[in-house]
Design a protein around this nucleic acid. Structure first.
Length: 560
RNA sequence: GCGCCCGUAGCUCAGCUGGAUAGAGCAGCGGACUUCUAAUCCGCAGGCCUCGCGUUCGAAUCGCGACGGGCGUACCA
């Protein structure tokens, strides 16, 4: 019995009671009361519905409690509280058998949604291949990976994809920047183009290229420079990502969409009539410059999608790319972007809705926008700018923090849409100010207990009969009840695409365990059966911490 | 100007699909190590949930409007 199924069974029993009492079919929502003293599950259905039915909420609640045929193996008690809250308490047998399975098999078996999940594609990072990844990309990489793992944990088949912008002007500019360094090194100085890339890494690439391919010319060999720079940038990005343990299933090249697929997408958009004329129009007439009539779709401005020179602007292949992703048949498409992408992504979404229908797009496409990171060093903001290469790279960040785990965890303690101050000194400090150690320490502590028990010949019970009914201390019950909440909390974090809820959950579990540890002596040779049961609870807790940290790609150390 | 995000304890932030007394960490103060790891625990203190109006049985949560901060507002990506 997974906690999700248990709640569903309770909700169905209450819905049936509601129908018997009021004659109305309605799905009753069951939630956890914020104060544990109210019980384990609660519903406000009587408060919500009484007004519309002209009934007294308290009376309705009492009748519902009376009528409800709740599954006895799950709910031990139901009561009416306040103006009409219905509070329920889990039966001990339900909690014990859950904890036993958790301690025996771990958390992951409880996570897949009962209703099932399909195939998902998560697109993240998708940074321009023009240099090393920055701190901002780091947040996105960590966020995207955690979302991907969260979906996997809850039963989705996930593919990770990186959209590689290798066809636009920036790529050409990068190639020219490389050429400038190349010819300067070769003794015929060439200026870095206006707005070009200045990073020291470009000079390094130029040196390597000069060594392997001397005698190139400009602009005759521009394609050589561009593709060399692109390949080097890609290698750099792949290696930066590997610092965080991130591996993409696919790098989808923008260049593969240009010009054929982008032109086909433009053609499809042209066939849409908005009521204010075709969705695509040419202006000035005969110029070849094509505009997308986004104002007809509720967007603030029309946008150029093809320039006079025939080149597509960024939005056009991006639309083609999304059409491609939709056509590949995923049940869920997740896009993770920085907030600077807001306008573009809204435009792309509007165009997709015009082609595929609003309902289809909103059901299958979820866009997560994250706000920027402000890096603090010695309490002051670190200013950054990409083109001038004056920025802190992902690699520098991870090295300065000294740990990929800490970097990941800290980025995941804030909601995506919250601005984030990342304090480098705090992150690098190995102290109790650093939340990741608090959680890892709980795990290490439990492993210590397991070791002590094993050395003393105490084993966790092999069957439920050796566990059920043995743990009655309030500290033990409290821990079991918290562990029972975990699967539903993980599922809702996955639904919301908010891995930050997992770090919160971990902190809560660690707190509960540390507190339990303080009050309860687990290994007691004089009480072998009790010790054995407690050991199983510890193992359940360890399994949960380990599995949740796994979703965040953070190590669960056995010793600290 | 316009669009979006944010505004909750001294600081950093949870809580936001409306529910019972608004939470955590850090910082501050006071306690707890002959016991499985004190990177821990227990307690105290700290709040006009930015402000105003509205929606309703009920608002930190939803709507409108101010104010403050961020991002964007390209024929870059």
């Amino acid at each position: 019995m997974t906690p999700e199924r248990a709640r569903r069974a309770v909700a169905e029993a209450l819905s049936a009671a509601f129908e018997r009492v009021t004659g109305i079919r309605r799905l009753v929502q069951v939630v956890e009361p914020h104060d544990a003293s109210f019980g384990d599950l609660s519903t406000q259905i009587a408060l919500e519905a009484a007004g519309g039915l002209g009934m007294n909420p308290g009376k309705l609640a009492r009748e519902l409690a009376e009528s409800a045929d709740l599954p006895a193996d799950i709910v031990g008690r139901i009561s009416v509280a306040g103006h009409g809250f219905l509070n329920m308490t889990f039966s001990d047998s339900y909690l014990d058998s859950y904890a036993f399975e958790l301690g025996t098999d771990g958390l992951l078996g409880f996570l897949p949604r009962a209703s099932g999940a399909g195939r998902a594609l998560v697109e993240y990072v998708s940074s321009n291949p023009t240099g090393p990844l920055s701190v901002g990309h780091c947040r996105q990489a960590v966020l995207g990976e955690a979302i991907a793992r969260l979906l996997e944990a809850t039963g989705w088949k996930v593919e990770r994809e990186y959209y590689f912008n290798d066809a636009g002007r920036q790529t050409a500019l990068l190639g020219e920047s490389l050429a400038a360094r190349y010819f300067t090194l070769a003794g015929t100085p060439m200026p870095v183009p206006e707005g070009g890339y200045q990073g020291g890494y470009i000079s390094e690439w130029a040196g390597d290229l000069l060594a392997s391919r001397p005698g190139l010319s400009w602009p005759g060999d521009s394609e050589v420079f561009t593709s060399y720079a692109r390949d080097r940038a890609m290698d750099l990005i792949v290696s930066d990502l590997s610092l965080l343990g991130i591996v993409f299933d696919r790098f989808f090249n923008e260049s593969s969409l240009v010009p054929v697929a982008a032109a086909a997408a433009l053609e499809r958009l042209s066939s849409v009539n908005t009521g204010e004329g075709s969705l695509v129009y040419e202006n000035p007439p005969g110029s070849g410059k094509m505009w997308l009539r986004l104002t007809a779709l509720g967007r603030p401005e029309d946008r150029v999608v093809r320039r006079e020179n025939g080149m597509f602007t960024y939005r056009m292949p991006d639309m083609a790319y999304h059409l491609d992703k939709f056509a590949r048949g995923y049940d869920l498409l997740v896009d993770i972007f920085g907030s600077d992408h807001l306008d573009t992504s809204r435009d792309v979404t509007a165009a997709l809705e015009a082609l595929l229908g609003r309902e289809e797009v909103s059901r299958r496409l979820k866009i997560v926008l994250h706000q920027f990171v402000t890096l603090l060093r010695e309490g002051r903001k670190v200013k950054m700018s990409t083109r001038s290469a004056n920025f802190v790279t992902l690699r520098e960040l991870v090295e300065e923090v000294g740990s990929a785990d800490v970097t990941r965890y800290l980025f995941l303690t804030r909601r995506a849409e919250a601005h984030m101050d990342f304090d480098l000194e705090l992150a690098a400090r190995q102290s109790d100010e650093n939340p990741v150690y608090y959680v890892q320490y709980a795990h290490a502590r439990i492993c210590g207990i397991l070791g002590t028990a094993a050395a003393g010949g105490i084993e966790p019970p092999a069957a439920l009969s050796g566990f059920a009914g043995r743990l009655s201390d309030p500290a033990e019950r409290k821990l079991i009840r918290l562990l029972e909440l975990v699967p539903c909390r993980v599922i809702s974090a996955a639904d919301a695409l908010e891995p930050q809820r997992i770090t919160e959950l971990l902190a809560e579990i660690a707190t509960a365990f540390h507190s339990f540890y303080q009050k309860i002596r687990v290994v007691d040779p004089a009480e072998r059966e009790l010790s054995s049961a407690r050991l199983l609870l510890c193992r359940a807790c360890r399994n949960v911490i380990r599995d949740l940290l796994g979703i965040l790609s953070v190590e669960a150390p056995e010793r600290m």
